[in-house]
Nucleic acid binder design. Structure first.
Length: 506
RNA sequence: CGGAGUGUAGCGCAGUCUGGUAGCGCACCUGGUUUGGGACCAGGGGGUCGAAGGUUCGAGUCCUUUCACUCCGACCA
């Protein structure tokens, strides 16, 4: 591709609402463009190219693992969501609208219902199982507060996969296979990541694991053990129970729990004064959809006491139970090896769930087993935020000048700069390298613009193609420079050798 | 949803207090000079000043209503 023909509106100026490196450089580098509405972005040619490359890696690994790609309708009849019971539970994040006949529709934020509907119509026998179907498609979530560019948009590209099994054991096998497959994907993309235990949230189900791209700018706090493999989202993290004695000071926190159909209930949580309440654990302990703050109340009817206080406290309530509701703190002891746990920050880029029959049962997704008996399929579900991965790659790979794309995500293999377009020798060498490498399948960008050296090198730094060739005034002495974007390393070499050097490299 | 703020050219902003010809920087177009770190000179194009209503001889500016967006918080696979 010739730079003079490419639509890449790079910019010197930082958008005023951007604070994260990925947001700043994706816009300044001309990869994406804000639509003006919050959390909505257009992908410009370079951004689209990267998105396609990341998507191709995801698809390649999934296909190798035996998954099959489909594309489900983006617009979903609301009746399907009524069947599963999530129409209410998902709340305002769900974008709803009516058609001309006044039928209710939603734009899918995730597609369990749609996929189950597809499978229940076409799969009837254990002989057709197991099955793992996925799509890489737009999702829409009406986020309360979209921010950070592609990190938390309202419309985004997600890979969502769903597996269907005749037994719990087979689903566990697939879950492990997907964990391995995801590790391969993240590794190929050049990401530093950690697989952690997680809460299942609105999706539901039993075991779930998150794939966290490690970055200080991440929105999630994760607890990791330096001595073993253990890692968990703070929402699901557990530590070795601490022991308390009868003198331990106890605090009681009042919260309002929200349930389906607008029901609410005042609940109380008791735990040692020095320990923070972990909201998600607390929410799960009372089986609520959500917990919100409310005024303190001393009329205690429902009380959940932190499990560590069992046998120590002398609290009374009509309905009293024990559960782990405490937030793990740094230096708590690892549940597996006793190591001192630490906090780190991560970007949730993948999440895999063991769903069981949570959707197949209410939606009637049944099959006939060997005995001719109709039973619900056992399911797993697996997601990757594909557009979020772009942001994650930049969060991990940038410097103060711009992006540094990894090999499998780079918009081009090589970026050739002709410093002075009026110098015929420079142009001739640039064209020769460009045409020769292009014919050999190397994806080359040739900066043939009528610009000075400054803007050209700035754009190279900003756009972040991993390697570059600089053909400039040193050509008069028969020399050119080979540049490695990571570290901005320049190596001089003779203009005679450069072509064979590049042919060997790509 | 609570708190704070902003809407003026593609982007970033001034002008609003004190009403009187719509401005600046970047970007863009033409010509010339320049060509290794976001050049210079000259000329040029681009706006229903977020929307609606009101006050006034006259509104970007004052009043009322409304919409949108941003930031902090709460919330969130």
């Amino acid at each position: 591709m010739r730079f003079s023909r490419l639509l890449v509106p790079t910019s010197k100026e930082t958008p005023n609402d951007a604070t994260l490196a990925s947001h700043i450089y994706l816009i300044r580098g001309g990869f994406i463009q804000s639509v003006g509405g919050s959390g909505l972005y257009n992908f410009l040619p370079l951004g689209k190219k990267i998105l396609d490359k990341v998507r191709a890696v995801v698809k390649d690994e999934l296909d190798k693992a035996g998954c099959q790609e489909v594309a489900l309708s983006f617009v979903t009849p609301a009746t399907l969501w009524e069947e599963s019971g999530r129409l209410e539970k998902y709340g305002k994040e769900l974008l709803r609208f009516k058609d001309r006949k006044n039928n209710d529709f939603i734009l899918g934020p995730t597609h369990e219902e749609m996929m189950v509907n597809l499978v229940r119509q076409s799969v009837k026998s254990y002989k057709q199982l197991p099955l793992n179907l996925y799509q890489i498609n737009l999702k829409f979530r009406d986020e309360i507060r979209p921010r950070f560019g592609l990190m938390r948009g309202r419309e985004f590209l997600m890979k969502d996969g769903y597996s269907f099994h005749a037994s719990e054991e087979d689903m566990h096998r697939e879950f492990a296979l997907m964990e391995e497959t995801y590790k391969k994907i993240f590794t190929r993309l050049g990401l530093e990541f950690r697989v952690v235990e997680a809460d299942s949230g609105a999706i539901g189900g039993s075991g779930s694991k998150e794939f966290m791209v490690l970055a200080d700018s991440g929105e999630d706090t994760i607890v990791v053990c330096p001595d073993c493999e253990y890692g968990a989202n703070i929402e699901a993290a557990v530590a070795k129970p601490k022991s308390y004695d009868a003198d331990t000071e106890i605090k009681i926190i009042t919260m309002k729990a929200l349930y389906d159909e607008g029901e609410t209930k005042i609940v109380h949580f008791a735990l040692p004064v020095s320990i923070e309440l972990q909201d998600v654990k607390a929410c799960n302990a009372v089986n609520a959809n959500d917990l919100v703050e409310c005024e303190e109340s001393t009329d205690i009817q429902t009380l959940v006491v932190d499990a560590a206080l069992e046998g120590i406290d002398s609290l009374n309530a009509q309905e009293k139970s024990y559960a782990d509701i405490s937030a793990v703190q740094e230096n708590d002891a690892c549940i597996h090896c006793g190591g001192a746990l630490t906090y780190t920050k991560g970007i949730e880029a993948g999440h895999i769930f063991q769903l069981g029959t949570q959707y197949s049962e209410p939606l009637g997704c049944n099959f006939l087993d060997e005995n001719g008996k109709s039973v619900p399929m056992v399911m797993g579900t697996y997601g990757i935020g594909v557009s979020r991965l772009l942001a994650g790659i930049i969060e991990q790979n940038h410097d103060d000048k711009g992006c540094i794309w990894t090999k499998e995500s780079a918009p081009f293999d090589l970026h050739i700069i002709i410093s002075n377009i009026k110098d015929e020798a420079q142009v001739a060498l640039g064209e020769k390298l460009y045409e020769t490498l292009k014919s050999k399948g190397v994806d080359v960008l040739l900066d043939d613009r009528k610009e000075r050296f400054g803007p050209k090198i700035k754009d190279f730094e900003l756009m972040g193609v991993p390697y570059g060739v600089l053909i400039g005034k040193k050509l008069a002495d028969g020399m050119v420079e080979f540049m490695t974007r990571d570290g901005m390393i320049k190596e001089e070499m003779s203009s005679e050798e450069i072509l064979s050097f590049l042919e060997g490299k790509f």
